[in-house]
Amino acid sequence: MLVGATNSSLAQEYREIIPPEDFARVPPDRLRQYLGLTRQQFEQMDEETLKDLMSLRIEAKAQMPDDPDAELNTTEWRYLLGPHQWTGYDRPAYIWQPVSQIHKYNLLPLFIGSLKTTFVALLFAVPLAIAAALYVSQLAHPRAREWLKPGIELLSGIPSVVLGFFALIVMASFFQALFGYPSRLNAFVAGLALGLAVIPVVFSIAEDALTSVPRSYTEAALALGSTRWQAAWQIVLPAALPGVFAATVLGFGRAIGETMIVLMASGNASIVSWNLFDSTRTLTATIAAELAETVVGGHHYRVLFLLGALLFAVTFVANLVGDLVIHRLKGRLEGRR
């Protein structure tokens, strides 16, 4: 267990009670452990202080929730991943509520949030970016290409916090007025803004792959009497398909790892819902929003680092797959002489 080893449940910490009157009867080492003090601290304290601490301990016990859930170690995998019937809920649920009295760390709402926004972003960005790449690399006049390409790449020069700002201030109100859904900030708006950040990534990789398709393929197709559009669509695009796929995978990696846009535009409610128009909370936004308020080394802190490690793993795999595919494609297209 990655997180749980350092974390015991609320209840275990407070199970035992030693009243201050028993001070003299308990061995000092036992008392020191009970109060959770270091040897040095313990030696510096006089009897009064220790007794005060012991009564504080009893007060804390009195305030402890008499909820059976307090007995649980909520950082075990089954609570991180599986549903659980928490006290007060009528059926098992996936809940991320790290600052409630019972810390609930179920990751599923966050996974769903990340997947939803990423899905919207890719759905919006990939077709646009690939169509643009096809046009710029195959059909556009070379002189037009000279300014179209940097024009689209300019999009990658916009800091993501600015895209987030734009989604929050302008797009959110505009789309709410247009579609009339209840939650102003949601996966849809965040996904669209995220798409704007993904477009330049997908575009430049796809454009690169399409350009590396030998000119002779196009010439052969044209000499057979196909139109430029047919040659681009039927010959060049299929030849560069692995590259287009890689562009999508790398775009996915970019989308799922993006923080500021989703933090600002998604609404950040950690609910389990596949509705694109519900407020939603992603892995990245959770880390960004909550880490500053956690106790360093505490369980919440550690669970957030676990999220970071998961994100790293996901983007690592995405990048690896993307790079491998591109490498192979280039080898195949250029190795043939």
């Binding site: 790398l250 790892g257 990245t284 880390i287 960004a288 983007t315 690592f316 995405a318 990048n319 790079d323």
Partner: peptide, 14 residues
């Protein structure tokens, strides 16, 4: 180096 380029910026924060 290649992989470093694709790591999400929030992970760098962590």
């Amino acid at each position: 180096v290649n992989n470093l380029a694709g790591v999400p910026s929030i992970v760098f924060g962590l």
